[in-house]
Protein backbone atom coordinates (compact mmCIF):
# COMPACT_ATOMS: atom_id res chain seq x y z
CA UNK A 1 0.00 0.00 0.00
CA UNK A 2 1.67 3.23 -1.10
CA UNK A 3 -0.53 5.78 0.64
CA UNK A 4 -0.60 4.14 4.05
CA UNK A 5 -2.34 6.44 6.52
CA UNK A 6 -0.95 7.30 9.93
CA UNK A 7 -1.97 4.75 12.58
CA UNK A 8 -3.58 7.40 14.73
CA UNK A 9 -5.62 8.79 11.87
CA UNK A 10 -6.96 5.36 10.91
CA UNK A 11 -7.69 4.54 14.53
CA UNK A 12 -9.72 7.73 14.88
CA UNK A 13 -11.76 6.85 11.82
CA UNK A 14 -12.29 3.24 12.90
CA UNK A 15 -13.43 4.30 16.35
CA UNK A 16 -15.93 6.64 14.72
CA UNK A 17 -17.02 3.83 12.40
CA UNK A 18 -17.42 1.12 15.05
CA UNK A 19 -19.20 3.27 17.63
CA UNK A 20 -21.58 4.34 14.90
CA UNK A 21 -22.31 0.74 13.87
CA UNK A 22 -22.88 -0.21 17.49
CA UNK A 23 -25.31 2.67 17.96
CA UNK A 24 -27.45 1.84 14.94
CA UNK A 25 -27.94 -1.75 16.10
CA UNK A 26 -25.54 -4.05 14.27
CA UNK A 27 -24.60 -7.43 15.70
CA UNK A 28 -21.16 -7.61 17.27
CA UNK A 29 -19.54 -10.10 14.89
CA UNK A 30 -20.43 -7.93 11.88
CA UNK A 31 -18.87 -4.87 13.53
CA UNK A 32 -15.65 -6.77 14.22
CA UNK A 33 -15.55 -8.18 10.69
CA UNK A 34 -16.26 -4.88 8.95
CA UNK A 35 -13.62 -2.93 10.84
CA UNK A 36 -11.03 -5.70 10.46
CA UNK A 37 -11.68 -5.54 6.71
CA UNK A 38 -11.07 -1.79 6.55
CA UNK A 39 -7.93 -2.10 8.65
CA UNK A 40 -6.65 -4.93 6.44
CA UNK A 41 -7.13 -2.81 3.35
CA UNK A 42 -4.55 -0.37 4.76
CA UNK A 43 -2.16 -3.04 6.02
CA UNK A 44 -3.23 -3.08 9.65
CA UNK A 45 -4.85 -5.65 11.92
CA UNK A 46 -7.42 -4.75 14.52
CA UNK A 47 -8.96 -6.47 17.52
CA UNK A 48 -11.68 -5.16 19.74
CA UNK A 49 -13.79 -5.75 22.81
CA UNK A 50 -17.29 -4.39 22.69
CA UNK A 51 -19.35 -3.36 25.69
CA UNK A 52 -22.68 -1.62 25.88
CA UNK A 53 -21.19 1.85 26.42
CA UNK A 54 -17.64 1.62 25.10
CA UNK A 55 -15.52 -0.13 22.49
CA UNK A 56 -11.91 -0.99 23.30
CA UNK A 57 -9.91 -1.32 20.12
CA UNK A 58 -6.29 -1.87 19.31
CA UNK A 59 -4.80 -1.35 15.89
CA UNK A 60 -1.50 -2.91 14.84
CA UNK A 61 0.62 -2.20 11.80
CA UNK A 62 1.59 -5.37 9.91
CA UNK A 63 5.00 -3.96 8.84
CA UNK A 64 6.32 -2.07 11.84
CA UNK A 65 4.39 -3.80 14.67
CA UNK A 66 3.45 -0.34 15.89
CA UNK A 67 0.25 -0.55 18.01
CA UNK A 68 -2.34 2.01 18.92
CA UNK A 69 -5.13 1.41 21.45
CA UNK A 70 -8.15 3.48 22.23
CA UNK A 71 -11.32 3.33 24.28
CA UNK A 72 -14.28 4.86 22.50
CA UNK A 73 -17.62 5.92 23.84
CA UNK A 74 -20.68 4.75 21.92
CA UNK A 75 -22.83 7.70 20.96
CA UNK A 76 -26.54 7.62 21.49
CA UNK A 77 -28.18 7.22 18.08
CA UNK A 78 -31.43 5.59 17.14
CA UNK A 79 -31.67 2.28 15.30
CA UNK A 80 -31.04 2.58 11.59
CA UNK A 81 -31.00 -0.38 9.21
CA UNK A 82 -30.06 1.77 6.24
CA UNK A 83 -26.84 3.04 7.83
CA UNK A 84 -26.08 -0.56 8.82
CA UNK A 85 -26.10 -1.86 5.28
CA UNK A 86 -24.48 1.24 3.74
CA UNK A 87 -21.57 1.08 6.18
CA UNK A 88 -21.09 -2.64 5.51
CA UNK A 89 -21.01 -1.81 1.83
CA UNK A 90 -18.41 0.89 2.53
CA UNK A 91 -16.09 -1.65 4.16
CA UNK A 92 -16.15 -3.83 1.05
CA UNK A 93 -15.62 -0.81 -1.21
CA UNK A 94 -12.57 0.10 0.83
CA UNK A 95 -11.22 -3.41 0.51
CA UNK A 96 -11.91 -3.93 -3.18
CA UNK A 97 -11.40 -0.47 -4.68
CA UNK A 98 -8.40 0.57 -2.53
CA UNK A 99 -10.00 3.87 -1.54
CA UNK A 100 -7.94 6.46 0.29
CA UNK A 101 -8.79 7.28 3.89
CA UNK A 102 -10.01 10.76 2.93
CA UNK A 103 -12.37 9.27 0.37
CA UNK A 104 -13.78 6.82 2.93
CA UNK A 105 -14.28 9.60 5.45
CA UNK A 106 -16.14 11.62 2.84
CA UNK A 107 -18.44 8.69 2.01
CA UNK A 108 -18.92 7.92 5.71
CA UNK A 109 -20.11 11.47 6.37
CA UNK A 110 -22.43 11.30 3.37
CA UNK A 111 -24.00 8.07 4.68
CA UNK A 112 -24.57 9.56 8.12
CA UNK A 113 -26.05 12.76 6.65
CA UNK A 114 -28.73 10.87 4.73
CA UNK A 115 -32.09 11.91 6.16
CA UNK A 116 -34.30 9.39 7.92
CA UNK A 117 -37.75 8.58 6.60
CA UNK A 118 -39.96 11.53 7.55
CA UNK A 119 -41.51 11.06 10.97
CA UNK A 120 -44.87 12.16 9.62
CA UNK A 121 -44.83 9.08 7.35
CA UNK A 122 -43.54 6.77 10.09
CA UNK A 123 -46.14 7.85 12.65
CA UNK A 124 -49.34 6.77 10.82
CA UNK A 125 -47.72 3.62 9.42
CA UNK A 126 -46.61 2.49 12.87
CA UNK A 127 -50.16 3.04 14.07
CA UNK A 128 -51.56 1.03 11.15
CA UNK A 129 -48.99 -1.69 11.81
CA UNK A 130 -49.94 -1.97 15.44
CA UNK A 131 -53.63 -2.05 14.51
CA UNK A 132 -52.87 -4.94 12.14
CA UNK A 133 -51.12 -6.64 15.02
CA UNK A 134 -54.28 -6.29 17.09
CA UNK A 135 -56.15 -8.18 14.35
CA UNK A 136 -53.57 -11.00 14.51
CA UNK A 137 -54.34 -11.37 18.21
CA UNK A 138 -58.03 -11.71 17.14
CA UNK A 139 -59.22 -8.26 18.14
CA UNK A 140 -62.31 -6.95 16.31
CA UNK A 141 -62.54 -3.93 13.99
CA UNK A 142 -63.33 -1.54 16.82
CA UNK A 143 -60.39 -2.80 18.84
CA UNK A 144 -58.20 -2.20 15.78
CA UNK A 145 -59.44 1.38 15.60
CA UNK A 146 -58.79 1.87 19.31
CA UNK A 147 -55.26 0.50 18.94
CA UNK A 148 -54.70 2.78 15.93
CA UNK A 149 -55.61 5.88 17.92
CA UNK A 150 -53.72 4.72 21.02
CA UNK A 151 -50.55 4.01 19.02
CA UNK A 152 -50.85 7.28 17.12
CA UNK A 153 -50.89 9.25 20.36
CA UNK A 154 -48.35 7.05 22.15
CA UNK A 155 -45.83 7.03 19.30
CA UNK A 156 -46.21 10.78 18.80
CA UNK A 157 -45.38 11.32 22.46
CA UNK A 158 -42.41 8.97 22.11
CA UNK A 159 -41.07 10.88 19.09
CA UNK A 160 -41.49 14.22 20.88
CA UNK A 161 -39.69 13.00 23.99
CA UNK A 162 -36.88 11.36 22.01
CA UNK A 163 -36.26 14.63 20.18
CA UNK A 164 -35.93 16.38 23.53
CA UNK A 165 -33.35 13.73 24.66
CA UNK A 166 -35.25 12.71 27.77
CA UNK A 167 -34.02 9.56 29.57
CA UNK A 168 -35.13 6.67 27.38
CA UNK A 169 -36.41 4.51 30.22
CA UNK A 170 -38.73 7.29 31.25
CA UNK A 171 -39.82 7.75 27.64
CA UNK A 172 -40.79 4.08 27.49
CA UNK A 173 -42.75 4.19 30.76
CA UNK A 174 -44.57 7.34 29.70
CA UNK A 175 -45.46 6.32 26.14
CA UNK A 176 -46.56 2.88 27.32
CA UNK A 177 -48.72 4.61 29.91
CA UNK A 178 -50.28 6.98 27.36
CA UNK A 179 -51.01 4.25 24.79
CA UNK A 180 -52.51 1.82 27.29
CA UNK A 181 -54.48 4.62 28.97
CA UNK A 182 -56.13 5.57 25.66
CA UNK A 183 -56.85 1.91 24.91
CA UNK A 184 -58.18 1.29 28.42
CA UNK A 185 -60.74 4.09 27.96
CA UNK A 186 -62.44 1.78 25.45
CA UNK A 187 -62.92 -0.77 28.21
CA UNK A 188 -64.33 1.80 30.62
CA UNK A 189 -66.83 3.13 28.08
CA UNK A 190 -67.59 -0.41 26.78
CA UNK A 191 -66.51 0.26 23.22
CA UNK A 192 -66.14 -2.92 21.16
CA UNK A 193 -66.28 -6.57 22.17
CA UNK A 194 -62.56 -7.16 22.75
CA UNK A 195 -61.22 -4.22 24.81
CA UNK A 196 -58.71 -6.46 26.63
CA UNK A 197 -56.96 -7.34 23.39
CA UNK A 198 -56.91 -3.64 22.47
CA UNK A 199 -55.18 -2.78 25.75
CA UNK A 200 -52.72 -5.66 25.48
CA UNK A 201 -51.64 -4.82 21.90
CA UNK A 202 -51.63 -1.04 22.30
CA UNK A 203 -48.11 -1.08 23.81
CA UNK A 204 -46.54 -3.62 21.46
CA UNK A 205 -45.04 -0.95 19.17
CA UNK A 206 -42.58 -0.26 22.00
CA UNK A 207 -41.19 -3.82 22.25
CA UNK A 208 -37.43 -3.59 21.51
CA UNK A 209 -37.37 -6.29 18.82
CA UNK A 210 -34.02 -5.42 17.25
CA UNK A 211 -31.99 -5.47 20.52
CA UNK A 212 -33.63 -8.79 21.46
CA UNK A 213 -32.68 -10.39 18.14
CA UNK A 214 -29.18 -8.86 18.24
CA UNK A 215 -28.67 -10.07 21.81
CA UNK A 216 -29.46 -13.69 20.96
CA UNK A 217 -27.39 -13.47 17.76
CA UNK A 218 -24.40 -12.20 19.76
CA UNK A 219 -24.71 -15.00 22.31
CA UNK A 220 -24.83 -17.62 19.56
CA UNK A 221 -21.83 -16.00 17.84
CA UNK A 222 -19.87 -16.31 21.09
CA UNK A 223 -19.95 -12.62 22.06
CA UNK A 224 -21.74 -13.65 25.23
CA UNK A 225 -21.05 -10.53 27.29
CA UNK A 226 -22.16 -8.14 24.58
CA UNK A 227 -25.23 -10.27 23.92
CA UNK A 228 -26.25 -10.50 27.55
CA UNK A 229 -25.88 -6.77 28.05
CA UNK A 230 -28.08 -6.15 25.01
CA UNK A 231 -30.67 -8.56 26.38
CA UNK A 232 -30.62 -6.94 29.82
CA UNK A 233 -31.12 -3.55 28.21
CA UNK A 234 -34.07 -4.91 26.23
CA UNK A 235 -35.47 -6.51 29.38
CA UNK A 236 -35.27 -3.15 31.17
CA UNK A 237 -37.32 -1.59 28.40
CA UNK A 238 -39.90 -4.39 28.65
CA UNK A 239 -40.11 -3.82 32.41
CA UNK A 240 -40.69 -0.12 31.66
CA UNK A 241 -43.53 -1.08 29.31
CA UNK A 242 -45.07 -3.22 32.07
CA UNK A 243 -44.73 -0.33 34.54
CA UNK A 244 -46.54 2.01 32.14
CA UNK A 245 -49.33 -0.54 31.68
CA UNK A 246 -49.71 -1.08 35.43
CA UNK A 247 -49.84 2.67 35.95
CA UNK A 248 -52.84 3.07 33.68
CA UNK A 249 -54.53 0.04 35.24
CA UNK A 250 -53.96 1.60 38.64
CA UNK A 251 -55.24 5.04 37.65
CA UNK A 252 -58.37 3.70 35.96
CA UNK A 253 -59.01 1.09 38.65
CA UNK A 254 -58.92 -1.84 36.20
CA UNK A 255 -57.84 -5.35 37.05
CA UNK A 256 -54.57 -6.44 35.44
CA UNK A 257 -54.78 -9.44 33.10
Amino acid sequence: MNNKPEIQELSEFLSEYTTCLMAVGVQTSRIARNSARIAQAFGYTTDMTIFQKTIIMSLKSDETNETFSSVNKIKPMSLNFEVNSMLSKLSWETYDEHLSLDEIKKRFDEILKKPRISKWIVLPLVAVGNACFCRIFSGDMIAMLVVFVATLIGFFVRQLMFDKHINHLFVFIFSSFIASFVAALSKIYHIGATPDIAIATSVLYLIPGVPLINGITDIIDGHVLAGVSRLINALLLIICIAIGLSLSFLLLGLKSF
Binding site: N80, F81, E82, R116, V128, G129
Partner: peptide, 9 residues
Protein backbone atom coordinates in the same frame (compact mmCIF):
# COMPACT_ATOMS: atom_id res chain seq x y z
CA UNK B 1 -44.04 -2.41 7.68
CA UNK B 2 -45.05 -0.43 10.75
CA UNK B 3 -42.48 -1.97 13.05
CA UNK B 4 -39.56 -1.89 10.64
CA UNK B 5 -40.15 1.78 9.80
CA UNK B 6 -39.18 2.63 13.39
CA UNK B 7 -35.65 1.43 12.55
CA UNK B 8 -35.35 3.38 9.28
CA UNK B 9 -34.92 0.55 6.72
Amino acid sequence: IGFCLISNP
